[in-house]
Design a protein around this nucleic acid. Structure first.
Length: 828
DNA sequence: CGGTGAAAGTTTTTT
DNA sequence: ACTTTCACCG
């Protein structure tokens, strides 16, 4: 019998399993079915490993098998593993897969995003850096609100400062690990603009500190500062995590890179001795010199999928990995197990136009598959109708809605898609976009919870001060703030002392009442004495009980329910939904605290809300789509100005990054890929002419089957199919001067067409029209007329009440499903 | 202090 | 086109 010590297992000692299921049998099980490169990536052992994993090359499989093999062969305890993923959902999935491979709970592993891991470390070590362990995490909107106030107070807007501008500059600096003081040292004090920015940055930093709050960028940067300033604290984590694995390494920024370096640093013999003296187990972990060697580092990434430069991601982190970590092993995964060869060929062709990259070609052994389908609509609605129709065709052919996704470059593009999807009775879900937690009423309810959890958070307090309306206006708010300042009180303390402010009795009463409600809620959260001693949360009220109490006593829910604004009904429902979510949280996380709940909410990513079980089509941005895959993928709005986006044109490396975005989108598809665009697109209410994206020309002509090519769509009557990549004549074939010639020329062509074509020529375009049909009843056999599709016969009616759906065979437009309640139809 | 109407800005991607 | 913010009056 072998006993192996897990230094961080609370039980201390564990019995190692008998040899029968020991290392050898396990290693076979964990590498069976892997290709030689994948196997090498699982089995290599050394200080640094870079896995260059093309899209769909099985990198998640390699990562999970690598972790499982480390644990299974007794090379590491679960608690010695730190794996960083891009989303919480990916983390949960990875944990599940590792546990399935091990057939055992692998608790103690840290598998999380950079942000979650840092929050966990920071809450634990908060005191060291003078932060409350209940610190609030500010999102972009919170950050903007604060900057807006600062800019207004400093009159900085007259110098051209905007909250958004300052926000992005501060974020960039923090991602480069430059704090206010570092910035101040290098600032040019002769430049009034720079002096003003410094002042904004200073005040911003001070306000967050006063509120015991951190923004997203601080989470990473503060952890790095913590480790640098307190080597002994760092040593605890350096000693604990023996294996660090980082996914999506191409999208790490400088701060994250620095964090990885801190975590993989060896522990100096002197500090090892100190740890030993403090009873931290170091025995058997040191090398000959008495140091604990640095943790092994595995990074996985694909520079062709780097799409977060705007967030500070530095592609050099991956391209220069071998220089950063001399002696690093590099494994290349090029065989694709996801897509058909046609899809891969298109992806390869597009990405090969990015220069300055290592050549890498995805290939599959699974055959060409079907051609890519292309479509050019007249308008965004026309394009959306194409997408809806094709989804129905797929669905009738047996493809589940959940296996279909629609991608787009900007969130604004969802509008036309949603309008058509609703009308077509197509079940869909928008992933990300205006998130649930960003709704005003949810932020209000959350602010109550935050104010209870972190009494220092002035932003949350000010938010709820007059929500719901209780007669506390801006004047009173300012009075409270200055009263607090004069008497060295926090805003919350000032509220408690409102009696001495000499305000009107009504206002004073309202403030005192709110302060009491918050105090009472805070009291509910205190665990009982024994629990405090034991460090548990026993006796504290559940999150849902606290929220229910706050909603009731503040009157927030009641006000929404009694309002005569019809939208408030939905808002009340949303708040009730939040309450239901806290109940779920309490059930799923017994013993978890309010702060745990707030942390989880702060760090949910768009991709985290994906519900695999839902039978709906998923709509999302190309950024959100990273790391996902679907049977069928629709890439919409493949137009100049949208993809590549207008805003990227001036940024260095912009067009190349946009191309990678396109590449990411293409490679999400397993079997079917659809590319679509519109000839005109509404922006700011104005309709503008749109042009096919330059990236479309980069796909070999024979891979795309155009249902309606850009050439066909240019003239209404001219159905002359013109091949997309056809050369138009001599002198047009040069690099960059492809099928559409120069941009100006095309603009001319379109504008001529537009003025020459009267409105009637666009008659067949699909609009987003809806109408309220009341309780119009239809039955099979009825003939109807549709604004966009003309006349047709009802074949079948399904569904109930407002969700009744007519299945109609149109005389010319084909078969469609329509939501009877709102479709623009009339019975003939 | 709160409600109404005008005015302005909005749309690049996100933890 | 649509939402959010500002200015003024009751």
């Amino acid at each position: 019998m072998t006993l192996i010590l897990d230094p961080d297992d609370p039980a201390g000692w564990r019995e190692a399993p008998a040899a029968a299921s020991g290392p050898h049998a396990a290693s076979d099980r964990l590498t069976d079915g892997l290709n030689p490169q994948q196997r090498e990536a699982v089995e290599y052992r050394g200080p640094a490993l870079l896995i260059v994993a093309g899209a769909g090359s099985g990198k998640t499989r390699v990562l999970t098998h690598r972790i499982a093999s480390l644990i299974d062969r007794r090379e590491a305890w679960p608690s010695q593993i730190l794996a960083i993923t891009f989303t919480n959902k990916a983390a949960a999935e990875m944990r599940e897969r590792v546990q399935a491979l091990l057939g055992d709970s692998a608790s103690g592993m840290w598998i999380s995003t950079f942000h979650s891991a840092c929050v966990r470390i920071l809450r634990r070590e908060a005191e060291a850096i003078g932060l409350s362990s209940t610190f609030t995490i500010y999102d972009s909107a919170d950050t903007r609100t604060i900057l807006k106030r600062i800019i207004k107070e400093l009159d900085a807007d007259t110098m051209g400062f905007t909250p958004a501008g300052a926000q992005s500059k501060i974020s960039k600096l923090k991602n480069e690990l430059s704090d206010v003081e570092t910035y101040a040292r290098n600032a040019n004090t002769n430049d009034p603009h720079e002096v003003m920015f410094l002042e904004i940055f200073r005040q911003y930093t001070r306000r967050l500190r006063d509120a015991s709050a951190l923004d997203f960028d601080d989470l990473i940067a503060e952890t790095v500062y913590l480790f640098r300033a307190f080597p002994k604290v760092a040593a605890l984590y350096q000693r604990r995590f023996r294996h660090l694995l980082v996914d999506e390494y191409q999208d790490t920024n400088h701060a994250q890179y620095a964090l990885i370096h801190e975590l993989t640093r060896p522990v100096d013999p002197m500090i090892v001795a100190e740890l030993d003296a403090h009873g931290v187990l170091v025995q058997g972990m040191t090398d000959a010199s008495g140091a604990i060697p640095g943790a092994s580092l595995t990074v996985v990434g694909d520079s062709d999928q780097s799409i977060y430069a705007f967030r500070g991601a530095d592609i050099r982190n991956i391209s220069e990995f071998e220089r950063d970590f001399p002696g690093a092993k590099v494994v290349l995964l090029e065989q694709n197990y996801r897509s058909t060869q046609n899809i891969l060929s298109a992806a390869n062709a597009v990405i090969s136009h990015n220069f300055d990259r290592k050549d890498k070609k995805l290939w599959t052994a699974d055959g060409d598959g079907e051609k890519i389908t292309g479509y050019t609509g007249y308008t965004a609605h026309d394009e959306a109708q194409f997408v809806a129709d094709e989804i129905e065709v797929l669905h009738r052919a047996g493809v589940a809605y959940r296996d279909i996704a629609v991608f787009y470059r900007t969130n604004a593009q969802t509008r036309a898609l949603e309008e058509i999807f609703v009308r077509s009775a197509l079940p869909y879900r928008v992933v990300g976009g205006t998130k649930f937690y960003e709704r005003a009423e949810i932020k209000d309810a959350m602010a109550y919870l935050i104010a209870v959890a972190n009494p220092l958070d002035e932003l949350a307090l000010r938010r709820i001060l007059n929500t719901p309306k209780r007669g506390i206006g801006p004047a009173t708010e300012t009075a409270l703030a200055s009263f607090g300042e004069q008497n060295a009180l926090t805003f919350r303390q000032a509220m408690r002392a409102a009696d001495g402010l000499g305000l009107g009795p009504k206002v004073t009463g309202a403030i005192t009442k709110l302060a009491n409600v918050l105090d009472e809620a805070a009291a509910m959260l205190v665990p009982n004495a024994e629990a405090i001693a034991a460090g548990t949360n026993e006796g504290a009220a559940k999150v849902s009980d606290v929220l229910a109490f706050l909603l009731d006593r503040s009157g927030l829910l009641e006000t929404l329910r009694n309002s005569r604004d019809p939208q408030d009904e939905t808002r009340a429902e949303n708040v009730e939904e939040l309450l239901a979510q806290t109940k779920d949280f309490d059930r799923e996380n017994p013993g978890a605290t309010l702060v745990d709940f707030l942390t989880q909410v702060s760090l949910v990513a768009a991709a985290d809300e994906l519900d695999d079980a839902s039978g709906t089509v998923s709509l999302m941005t190309l950024h959100t789509a990273k790391g996902l895959e679907y049977h069928a993928v629709f890439l919409t709005g493949i137009e100049e100005g949208l993809l590549p986006h207008q805003m990227s044109a001036t940024e260095p490396g912009g067009p190349a990054e946009e191309r990678r975005l396109f590449y990411v989108g293409i490679t999400r598809a397993r079997k079917r890929l659809y590319l679509s665009l519109a000839m005109s697109r509404a922006q700011f209410g104005e309709v503008a002419v749109a042009m096919p994206s330059r990236y479309l020309q980069e796909i070999p002509e024979d891979l795309i089957d155009w249902k309606q090519s850009p050439g066909m769509a240019t003239s209404r009557g001219g159905t002359q199919p013109r091949a997309l990549n056809a050369r138009r004549g001599p002198g047009q074939g040069g690099a960059g001067g492809g099928a559409w010639g120069t941009r100006d020329r095309d603009l001319d062509r379109f504008s001529v067409m537009k003025s020459a074509a009267p409105k009637a020529e666009w008659a067949n375009k699909v609009t987003g029209t809806v109408r309220d049909n009341g309780d119009l009843t239809l039955e099979a056999g009825d003939r109807i007329r549709h604004t966009d599709f003309g006349e047709g016969r009802v074949m079948q009616v399904t569904g109930e009440g407002t969700k009744r759906i007519a299945h109609v065979a149109f005389d010319t437009a084909g078969q469609k499903k329509l939501l009877i309640k709102i479709a623009p139809i009339e019975k003939l």
